[in-house]
Every structure is written in structure tokens, then in C-alpha cells.
Computed example of a mutant assay.
Amino acid sequence: MTKHGAVVVPEDAVVAVAAGRHFSFPPPRTAGAGDLCKKLAAQQIDLGAAVMGSWLDSMKASSPRHRLMAPAVDAEHDEWMEKHPSALGRFEAVAAAAKGKRIVVFLDYDGTLSPIVEDPDRAVMTDEMRDAVRGVAARFPTAIVSGRCLDKVFSFVRLEELYYAGSHGMDIQGPTAASTHHGPTTTPKGEEESVLCQPAREFLPMIGEAYAALAAKVEAIPGAKVENNKFCLSVHFRCVDERRWGAVAEQVRAVLRDYPRLRLTQGRKVLEIRPTIKWDKGEALRFLLSALGFSSGDGANDGDDAFPIYIGDDRTDEDAFRVLRARGQGAGILVSRFPKDTCASFSLRDPSEVKDFLRKLVTCAAA
């Protein structure tokens, strides 16, 4: 009988190293990869007027107009794929590393479970993707970790058996429906308690004020949209003429001058305003692992039997990928068709491949 949360793999599966000059798995805790992760962690937008030009450059760099290319002949793409091979193509290496351990699945939403669309309110997932996520959640503890507010991402996913971490992990809630293989966490006295974490609650009034100010400021810029994600704000400029990006940046800078306890980070054609607390998707991953009874990955008790798999497409997901590298156990999977700096070990091209990977996990667990 297959144990819930465990994966069955062939005895002769490759365990640690897949072919390729640069690829090694599990990923190293430090070395060259550590330098890259530190560089990505340090990327934050400076709001000073003297660096306005570099800020716009950063906005453009995070939203490149990728040229069409043939991966088979593009040297840069080939080299990147050697370092971050397809999680589908190397599935047996992932499964072998997870053998005998408890898989825990973490999924970003936009660009991972649903395609990136011009209108963020229309980023719906397909029924096929929902079925794939449902199948994974029936076998492994599964969490959605998104920059969206918790209520919004739940309205898209509509699966009560999942953990949800909205607002980049600043609003965490446990399953509201019973699961066949994991239930509520317990207190030291053995009493059941719901999983709930809101480390930025004190910032709610401030974020509400900043939202009203930002919405009024960018209203005159065609295509700009401010989304209130409860514990953070998202300023979308995907539909803004690139010649007006500077205007968006200036309006955001003007508002944040009045809120020194809020900071600015950046995603794919979106500016994120968050509280200045040490909390991100990586911290959410640590919290959820701890709530599930595993090591949080802080180095104290990393020898547990958890094998986290985190799949995401955005710069904000790098915080979670860094946690997995620090653990030295687990798999970070970046969703991207094009080369980009990342601390992830594997890659998938698009949500369709994410769906195939999730289905493969289910099939492997049922074997």
C-alpha cells in the first residue's frame, strides 16, 4: 500500500545528479548559487529621485520584450536549460530525491496555475488545472502562495482542502474542508487549532490609506490599476504605454514618501507595496512547514522527512527558492520560457507544463 505523501520510483532511478555540465540536484546550500541568491535578495527599488532612471530601467528589465527564438539553436537558452532542466524531463531525479519523504507542494497562482493576462481580474484557472491541483491535494499537503489577497485567490481556485497564503504570505489560512491525509495542527496539549498567520495586521490602516492615495494618483494614467491585496498593494502597469511608465513610477514614489514603513518591490509588470517587515513567500513556506510538523528550514532540525516542492514564475518566488537551497532538501521550479536569474533548480515552460507535472506527481504517488 502506498503511504500518503510518499512517491514510488524505480529502484534504479537517478537520485542526485542528472546529466549536464552545470546541473546538480539536490542544489548546493552555498557556493556559486549562494552568491546569485544573495544578489536576487538584494534587488529592491530605491525611491530616491537621483535613481529614477535606474528605477525605470529595473521596470523594463523585469518586463522584457522577449524575442522569438529557437531553443535548440540558442546558446544562451541551452546553457540556462543545463542549469535549470525541465522538471518534466528530469522527473525521475525529483521523484528519487523525494523517495521515502513527505512531499509538501507550494504553488504560486498567476503565471503558474493561470496564464498572465492583461486584466488581473480575469486570471482564471482552467477546470483541468483545478482537477490537477485537487488530485495533488488529495495526496500531499498543498498550499497556494500568492501576492493576491487571500479571498481573491480562493475565489479563483475554489478548493477548500488547500492551505492559502495570500498577500505574499502575510495572510495564511488552513484548509476549511477535511483532508484524507492531513488535518488541523495541534497545540502542545494536543488541542486542535486552525492555521492562521497575519504578521502585518498592524499595517492594515496604513495600507488602506496608501491604497486610496495611489488609486487617486494613477487614475489619470490609462491602463494603470491599483489592486488592494489586503496586506500589500499591487500597481499594475502591464496595460500602460511604456512611455508612461515613468509617470506611474513618479506617482508611486510621491505616495510612498508619506509612508516610510512601506517598501517597494517588483514583479512582472507590477510594483508591489508591502510593509517593512521581514516576511515574504520564503517565510510563509517556513511557517507552513512548521505548522505541518516539519522543520522550518532554519538549520536547527533540517533532517526531517519533508520534501517541499515550490513552483512559481515571479521574482517574489525567489524568496521561497532561497529557503529550499538553504534547506538542501526540496525542489524549486521556475515557470519560464526564457532564461532568467533564479535560485530554482528546475524549470517548466508554462502553466500547461505545470499541470502535466502535477498530474505526474499524482500518478507516481498512486503507483
Rank of each mutant, 00 (worst) to 15 (best):
R337P: 00
K3H: 12
A320E: 02
V117Y: 15
R359E: 12
T126W: 05
R244K: 14
I116D: 06
E118C: 12
M81R: 11
T142L: 09
G299A: 13
D35A: 15
L334R: 14
A300Q: 07
P27V: 12
I277E: 10
R139P: 00
P26H: 14
V117A: 13
T316V: 15
V218G: 01
G190E: 14
A18E: 13
A98G: 10
D171C: 07
G223P: 05
Q198F: 01
E283T: 03
K230M: 01
R65H: 12
K217M: 00
P339G: 02
E353G: 02
L358C: 01
E92Q: 11
I309A: 04
V235W: 00
K360W: 05
I172D: 02
T265P: 11
G299Q: 11
S179M: 02
T112I: 08
V226W: 05
L204G: 14
R315C: 06
G89V: 15
T187N: 03
R337S: 04
K340T: 15
A87E: 01
G34C: 13
D171Y: 08
H182Q: 03
A247G: 03
T187K: 00
A143T: 10
K39S: 15
D127Y: 14
G312S: 01
D298M: 08
M1T: 15
F287E: 03
R327S: 09
L262S: 09
S58I: 14
D302C: 06
L264I: 09
I144S: 09
D57H: 07
G328F: 11
E82V: 12
D12A: 13
T363S: 13
A306K: 02
K3V: 15
K281G: 06
L348Q: 00
A42G: 03
Y259P: 01
S234T: 11
D341H: 08
F23A: 10
M52W: 04
V15C: 12
R201L: 15
R139F: 00
H182A: 04
E82K: 04
R349P: 04
V133W: 05
I103D: 05
Y163W: 13
G111Q: 04
A72W: 07
L361V: 01
V354T: 06
G147E: 12
C149F: 13
P120S: 08
W55I: 15
I333R: 02
D119N: 10
D241R: 03
A61W: 07
K340S: 14
K99F: 07
P205S: 10
E191V: 14
A93K: 02
W80G: 06
L196Y: 12
L289R: 02
E160P: 08
T185H: 07
A72P: 04
I221N: 06
V7Q: 00
G246R: 09
R257A: 12
F91V: 03
I277N: 06
G297Y: 06
V136W: 13
G297N: 07
R315H: 11
C37K: 01
S155Q: 13
P339D: 03
G89K: 11
P222Q: 11
M81H: 12
D171L: 08
R359A: 10
P120T: 05
S24L: 07
D280F: 01
R139N: 00
A93F: 05
I277M: 09
P141K: 02
A16M: 13
K225T: 08
L113K: 13
R65P: 05
N301D: 09
L348E: 00
P120G: 06
L56Y: 08
E193Q: 08
T112D: 02
A213F: 00
E193Y: 06
